[in-house]
Amino acid sequence: MSNVEIKVENIVASAAFGKSIELPKVAPALEGVEFNSENFPGLIYKLKEPKTAALIFGSGKLVCTGAKSIEDSIKAIHITVDKMRTLDPEIPKEFEIKIQNIVASANLGKTLNLEAVALDLENTEYEPEQFPGLVYRLEDPKVVLLLFGSGKVVCTGAKSFEDAQLGVEKTKERLGELDLI
């Protein structure tokens, strides 16, 4: 199988505590937290290290975005939750963390003729009037790839690093089969 180096750009992970949180109660524990209930119903807490942002909702759910690796994402969630626990000890220590989305980029190293790709490749969407990239939906792994004329590729929708890697490799292989690369 052809090897392509992919770079993770963003990871979105979520955690659920299973009990509701009183947002005003925990807010003072998080320095620099944003809360704008008119615009957005959750707390926005931005961490410097690892550079991530956490969204905390009253329903007891937390979403962490911006991490570049799964470890960073988990670490960020734990840092945030530990801070919140200082003011609300009822928040459980153990909870489930789930990776929701991984965005990765890669470079195929060759320019693509997107018009030809759009005609030959199945499950594609290419509307240069609306977006310069070509959208390619893969069934297995279930990811979506954006192919650009420069040969750069973005893979989104993956739940694991392996899925993203496999998605890019499969795409490259398929393009090779169709003689498009």
Binding site: T111, L112, N113, L114, E115, P128, E129, P132, G133, L134, F148, G149, S150
Partner: peptide, 12 residues
């Protein structure tokens, strides 16, 4: 188009 200059460019 032959040279692939239109790929990824808005047709208008």
């Amino acid at each position: 188009m032959e040279k692939g200059l239109t790929s990824g460019r808005g047709p208008t």
